[in-house]
C-alpha cells in the first residue's frame, strides 16, 4: 500500500490499489510498452539516416500510399453504409431487424483470415460477385479495389456501433419541434439529426480508418500483393522480416505506430469534443 499513498489520497476505504496497479502496469510494461520500445530502438539502431532511408524506399512509399488511400476510401464507404444501417436499425421495425443487428458484429468476431479467403472467393473473377462485375470491366480481387472491399468489411461495425446509440438516444421531441416549426424531413435530417450524430459518425469513421491502416489478415488474400500496386504496409513488414532486415521492418513498424498514435489522439479529441457538446 506504499504505492497507494504515494499515488493519491491516503486512507481510502477500498483496498487493493497497490496490487491491482502493480499487476496492470507491470503487465502493460512487459508485454506492450517494452516490446514497442524495443521496436523503436531497433528502428534507430543504425542511426537516423538508415531509419529515413528504410522509409524513403519507393516500394515502402507506394505501400503507404495504397494503404492510406484504401483505408480512407473504405472508411468513407463504411461511414455511408454504417450510417444507413444504424439509421434503419434504430428507426424502423421490420422482420429480420434483430438478426441484422446481431450480424453487424460479425466482422469483429470472424477471424480475419476467414474473412480474407471468403472475400477472395466472392470477388475472384469466377466468384459469386466477381463474375457479376467482370462483364462491367470491374476487377476487384487482386487489385487495390479488393483491399478496399476487405477494409469496408472490417470497418463497417465500427461506424454502426458508434452511431447507433446516439440515434437511439436522440430525443423525439427535438424532431417534433423541428416538424412543427415547418422543417421538411430532409431538413430535419440534415439540420437536427446529422449535427447530433456527426461526432459519433466521425468517431466511427476514424476508428474504421485506423483499423484499416493496420489490417492484415483480411487484406492479403484479396490484395494480390503486387509490389508498387497492391502491397500494403503490414505486408512489407512481413517481407522485411523474411529477409532478416530487422531494422527495415522496425522502421516501418515505428512509422505505423506513429500514425496509430496520431489517430488515437484524433479519436480522443473527437470524443472530448463530442462530449463537450
Amino acid at each position: 500500500m506504499a504505492q497507494a499513498s504515494a499515488l493519491g489520497r491516503p486512507r481510502r476505504v477500498i483496498p487493493g490499489l497497490g496490487l491491482s496497479f502493480t499487476i496492470t502496469t507491470s503487465t502493460l510494461a512487459a508485454l506492450v510498452l517494452l516490446p514497442l520500445a524495443a521496436m523503436v530502438a531497433m528502428s534507430l539502431s543504425k542511426g537516423l539516416p538508415a531509419f529515413v532511408a528504410a522509409l524513403a524506399d519507393r516500394r515502402v512509399l507506394a505501400a503507404f500510399r495504397v494503404t492510406i488511400l484504401a483505408a480512407l476510401g473504405a472508411a468513407v464507404v463504411s461511414a455511408v453504409c454504417g450510417m444507413l444501417l444504424a439509421w434503419v436499425l434504430t428507426r424502423y421495425r421490420f422482420p429480420g431487424r434483430r438478426f441484422i443487428d446481431a450480424a453487424v458484429d460479425l466482422p469483429f468476431a470472424l477471424p480475419t483470415a476467414v474473412a480474407g479467403i471468403a472475400l477472395t472467393a466472392l470477388y475472384a473473377p469466377n466468384g459469386w460477385i466477381g463474375a457479376l462485375l467482370e462483364p462491367l470491366g470491374i476487377t476487384v480481387a487482386f487489385t487495390p479495389l479488393g483491399i478496399g472491399v476487405a477494409l469496408v468489411f472490417v470497418g463497417l461495425p465500427f461506424v454502426v456501433r458508434a452511431v447507433q446509440p446516439i440515434l437511439e438516444d436522440l430525443p423525439a421531441d427535438e424532431e417534433e419541434a423541428a416538424r412543427l416549426l415547418g422543417a421538411t424531413r430532409t431538413q430535419i435530417f440534415l439540420r437536427v439529426i446529422m449535427p447530433a450524430a456527426a461526432p459519433a459518425l466521425i468517431t466511427g469513421f476514424t476508428m474504421a480508418f485506423a483499423r484499416g491502416l493496420g489490417e492484415y489478415g483480411s487484406v492479403i488474400f484479396i490484395a494480390g500483393n503486387k509490389p508498387m500496386l497492391s502491397e500494403i504496409v503490414p505486408l512489407l513488414i512481413v517481407i522485411q522480416l523474411d529477409q532478416y532486415n530487422y531494422v527495415g521492418a522496425a522502421a516501418i513498424g515505428t512509422a505505423m505506430l506513429m500514425v496509430s498514435f496520431v489517430m488515437l489522439m484524433v479519436i480522443n479529441r473527437l470524443q472530448a469534443w463530442a462530449a463537450a457538446r
Binding site: P171, D173, E174, E176, A178, L180, L181
Partner: peptide, 15 residues
C-alpha cells in the same frame, strides 16, 4: 409542419 402552431415542449426540446 403546416398547421402554424407554436409548441413548447415539456422539456423544451431545444436543439
Amino acid at each position: 409542419g403546416e398547421r402554424e402552431v407554436g409548441f413548447v415542449f415539456q422539456h423544451y426540446a431545444l436543439f
